[in-house]
């Protein structure tokens, strides 16, 4: 067990200096910190759909990227669907897992902790009486989400726990799933 404060000695593939520089710059120019994330989604057939994700807005301007990504969603066969892709709720779990995992890597880099492996396993409870309209007292979404991290790193057990705690504290998706958000939907 060892910990190190020497960030140069560890390499988790996160450019912490760039992130800290961005933080410093945006503290002085909070208007540039206003981002807009976008996705568009097209119905294919049945419950099968395809989202495309490309441009976003940030640092005061439209941002483009090298690739436009496609993410498909569907439902399993027991829902009388064709199971072409994960369900949207599984994509939510994937989003939470990816956000927390990226956070663990960034915090570890910042704290000078070399990671060897990080694996997150997620499980969410859902009573589908909600979405099926059987019982109005049951909510549509998750009753609870459990995340388990298995992390190997050059750090004490408490330091590893602190990585995971700090990652939750600074995670966008963790915030999105734990706190309410106003959603505005318009048509045509």
């Amino acid at each position: 067990m060892k910990t190190s404060n020497n960030t140069a000695a560890v390499e988790n593939g996160v450019n912490v200096d760039a992130l800290l520089g961005a933080r410093e710059a945006l503290e002085k120019a909070p208007e540039a910190a206003q981002f807009k994330w976008r996705a568009s989604c097209e119905w294919l057939h049945g419950t099968h759909s395809r989202s495309t994700i490309g441009k976003f807005f940030g640092l005061g301007t439209e941002q483009s990227r090298d690739t436009t990504f496609a993410v498909e969603a569907d439902h399993p066969k027991i829902f009388a669907s064709e199971d072409h892709a994960p369900t949207p709720v599984e994509l939510v779990l994937s989003g939470l897992a990816s956000c927390l995992t990226a956070g663990v890597a960034a915090v570890a880099q910042r704290r000078g902790i070399q990671l060897h492996s990080v694996k997150a396993t997620l499980e969410a409870d859902m009573d589908i009486q909600g979405i099926l309209g059987i019982d109005d007292d049951v909510r549509n979404g998750f009753g609870a989400i459990r995340v388990h991290f298995n992390i190997r790193a050059d750090a004490s057990e408490d330091d590893i726990k602190a990585l995971v705690a700090q990652s939750q504290k600074r995670s966008a998706v963790f915030d999105i799933v734990t706190n309410p958000t106003n959603v505005f939907v318009s048509v045509n």
């Binding site: 939750q168 504290k169 734990t178 706190n179």
Partner: peptide
């Protein structure tokens, strides 16, 4: 407390992590 409306208060699901951070 993350929301108040229609006579209802809403609370964040982050309680466990807030406590984990404080314990650590």
């Amino acid at each position: 407390l993350v929301g108040l409306g229609g006579g209802k208060a809403q609370f964040s699901g982050s309680l466990a992590n807030c406590c984990a951070l404080a314990d650590l």
